[in-house]
């Protein structure tokens, strides 16, 4: 069965169809969760929570074409909240903070960190564009904004990434 048919069936309450859809998306969703949360157990819990939220709200998915983007956004929202929550907890417990510890980070980790420092809407654009390989038009449709806005945001995001990486580099000199 193709994806559109599965989405339609899932919207009518067919949970087997919904699980099949999730199996198509699971690798990508898991990797996005891992990129945010950095450990396997948290990423697995994120998948469970995403499955729960998506099935609960599937009737709100207006356009079945965007199932993949829609569920990715549910996952990203959860991950962003989870990161903020973990920061809150670790801020409460100062012994967990590794103050002044400057280990040599490779460029990938620097980039990851820089992406996570972006404000949520810019972070979302970067993930949809480079992790999900969506075009500007597809992103515009998915987040319901004009393509011009998406281009501006993408530009802003890349600019901020460049600045963040340049700063990171200087710290190590």
């Amino acid at each position: 069965m193709d994806t559109l048919k599965l989405v339609k069936a899932a919207k009518k309450g067919d949970t087997a169809a919904f699980e099949m859809l999730l199996h198509q998306e699971k690798a990508k969703l898991y990797r996005i969760a891992l990129s945010y949360l950095k450990n396997e157990q948290d990423a697995l819990e994120a998948i469970q929570e995403t499955a729960f939220r998506a099935l609960k709200h599937i009737k709100k998915l207006r356009n079945p074409t965007y199932f993949s983007t829609w569920i990715t956004r549910i996952m990203m929202n959860y991950c962003m909240d989870e990161c903020r929550r973990q920061q809150r907890i670790s801020a409460d417990d100062s012994s967990l903070q590794e103050i002044g510890e400057k280990e040599e980070k490779d460029l990938r980790l620097q980039m990851e960190e820089a992406v996570q420092q972006l404000e949520p809407k810019l972070q979302e654009i970067i993930i949809l564009k480079y992790f999900q390989d969506l075009t500007i038009e597809q992103i515009a449709a998915a987040v319901n904004r004009p393509t011009g806005t998406i281009k501006t945001w993408l530009h802003q995001a890349l600019k901020q990434l460049r600045q963040a990486l340049a700063k990171e580099g200087n710290d190590h000199v």
Partner: peptide, 25 residues
């Protein structure tokens, strides 16, 4: 960014993933 994606594309998917999906459903 592409390298970052490639890195994650190479990470293994844990076997328990399906049971977590099922639990959520």
């Amino acid at each position: 960014l592409m390298k970052m994606k490639q890195y994650y594309d190479q990470t293994a998917i844990p076997e328990q993933l399906d049971s977590y999906i099922h639990a959520g459903v």
